[in-house]
Amino acid sequence: MPTRYAGAFCHGDAPSLADLCLVPQVFNAKRFECDLSGYPTLRRIAERCETLEAFQRAAPGVQPDAR
């Protein structure tokens, strides 16, 4: 049976490789207007990641080649 506790991030209370993979997927889901309402945990984790400086600096919109 799967656990329902993800912590502050995908696997516990510190960012991990799983979060690095999750954020771009959620970004693209939003970009293509996918309904994420059925995934509150994924949305919560992605939003928490987006508050961290490292994720903000890696965001597509702030890259030198962003349009």
Rank of each mutant, 00 (worst) to 15 (best):
A66S: 15
R43Q: 10
V23P: 01
H11P: 09
E53H: 13
S37R: 03
A18F: 12
E47Q: 11
A66F: 15
G12F: 10
E50C: 03
C10E: 04
G38E: 02
T41K: 12
T51R: 15
V23R: 00
P64R: 08
S37C: 02
Q56F: 07
Q25A: 00
Q25S: 00
A29S: 03
D35N: 06
F27T: 04
A8L: 08
G12A: 08
A58M: 13
G7M: 04
C49R: 06
T51N: 10
C10S: 13
D35W: 01
D35C: 02
A46L: 04
D19P: 07
A29K: 00
D19H: 06
G7P: 07
V26Q: 00
A46W: 03
D13F: 10
R48Y: 03
L20F: 13
D65I: 09
T51W: 11
L36E: 03
S16M: 05
D19Q: 05
F32V: 06
L20M: 13
D19E: 06
D35T: 01
L42F: 01
L20R: 12
R43T: 14
A46H: 06
L52P: 07
S16A: 12
D35G: 01
Q63A: 10
F55N: 03
A14K: 15
A46K: 03
G12H: 15
C49H: 05
Q63I: 11
T41Y: 09
D19M: 04
R67A: 13
H11S: 13
D13L: 10
P60C: 06
A14F: 10
G61P: 09
R57W: 12
P60S: 09
C21A: 15
R44I: 03
H11L: 15
C21N: 15
R4C: 04
H11Y: 14
D13I: 11
A66D: 11
P24L: 04
D65M: 07
P64W: 11
L36C: 05
P40A: 01
P64S: 05
L22V: 04
H11I: 15
H11C: 14
L22W: 06
L52I: 12
L36M: 08
R57S: 10
K30C: 03
F32H: 12
A66C: 10
A6K: 08
E33P: 02
D19R: 06
T3Q: 08
R31M: 07
R67F: 11
Q25E: 00
F9S: 03
C10Q: 07
F32K: 09
F32R: 08
L36I: 01
T41M: 08
T51G: 09
D13N: 15
H11N: 14
G7R: 04
A8T: 11
Y39E: 02
M1V: 15
S37W: 00
G38Q: 03
C10G: 05
E47K: 13
F9I: 04
E53Y: 09
Q25M: 02
G7I: 01
A29W: 00
R57T: 14
F9V: 05
A14T: 15
P40V: 01
D35S: 02
L20S: 09
T3C: 06
S37D: 03
T41V: 14
A54S: 15
A54D: 15
L52W: 09
R57C: 08
V26A: 00
L36H: 05
R43D: 05
Y5P: 06
R57Y: 12
L17F: 11
L20W: 14
E53S: 09
L52G: 07
E47W: 06
P2Q: 07
L20K: 12
P2I: 03
R67C: 08
L36G: 03
